[in-house]
């Protein structure tokens, strides 16, 4: 089955501090899901734990990508299997140009002895940059170095578009974006919606979901998904605030 399936996931940071407390979520290809939740509910931990970051220790549960367990795999293995994480805080890579970085990422997906065709690569790259409104001169700039918040996020979406992953997790992609940048980034994500791709949008605010309309919305609280619904849930949440969820949980 073409789905990113998360069952009863428990994960700690360090040895004792449990952040994910039995989280369940199915992200099928062809759908866009959103996770909303207050700060500290474990949204970013979820993204990094799935991507194989070794700061997080998974103590229970399973994560299956199209029926293959990815827990315990190396981060690059998981990435090559088709998982893409758009970072909340993309790292700066001094001296590494965008063109070389994306080329190296594509090269890593090829077999021994296979080479990227340079002219096709640049054609593809420029096309996608044009779509995202990124100046072509950016190819020679170091990845994320000295970029504005909007430039960083656009650069993440560019990488996503070039790598064509099967599952995408966008971690707080809207943070630090003004309305114009938000619109361009959302356009880029919408252009990638398709039957062969599942997209998980993690966000704090409902605003992003006006531009990327989700098929499902999940509310995360204290390491678990506590409510799921359609896009109306996001609006309701925005109106009533997270205290509403909290009150319901306690009740």
């Amino acid at each position: 089955m073409s789905v990113l399936g998360i069952q009863n996931l428990r994960a700690c940071i360090g040895h004792d501090k449990e952040i994910l407390k039995g989280l369940c979520l199915d992200l099928p290809q062809g759908e866009v899901h959103a996770i909303m939740g207050p700060n500290g509910s474990g949204k970013s931990t979820l993204a990094k734990a799935i991507a194989g970051h070794d700061d997080y220790e998974v103590t229970d549960g399973s994560v299956l990508m199209d029926d293959t367990s990815i827990l315990g795999m190396e981060p690059d293995e998981i990435a090559r299997m088709g998982l893409f994480l758009a970072f909340q805080y993309p790292m700066e890579l001094p001296g590494v140009s965008i063109a070389n970085f994306i080329r190296a990422a594509l090269q890593a997906r090829l077999g021994e002895g296979e080479r990227i065709d340079a002219s096709n690569y640049y054609k593809d790259l420029y096309e996608k940059m044009d779509e995202l409104g990124i100046d072509r001169q950016f190819t020679s700039r170091s990845v994320n170095e000295g970029f504005s918040g909007g430039e960083k996020k656009r650069c993440e979406i560019l990488q996503m578009a070039m790598l064509q992953p099967r599952y995408c997790i966008l971690d707080e992609t809207d943070s630090g974006l003004d309305i114009d940048a938000l619109r361009i980034v959302a356009q880029g994500v919408n252009a990638m919606r398709g039957s062969d791709r599942g997209i998980l949008v993690i966000t704090h605010y409902q605003r992003l979901l006006e531009y990327i309309v989700p098929d499902r919305v999940h509310v995360m609280w204290d390491g678990r998904i506590v409510r799921s619904g359609d896009k109306a849930l996001a609006v309701e949440l925005e109106e009533k605030g997270y205290d509403w969820v909290k009150a319901e949980l306690v009740a």
């Binding site: 970051h53 990435a79 970072f87 890579l93 001296g95 190296a104 790598l163």
Partner: peptide, 22 residues
């Protein structure tokens, strides 16, 4: 930084190599 690069599919050696070359 290494995690960021590995999340794009490069193995650890390739990530370090890219940093050094940069």
């Amino acid at each position: 930084q290494i995690f960021y690069m590995r999340q794009r599919g490069m193995n650890e050696a390739e990530a370090m190599s890219l940093s050094v070359n940069g």
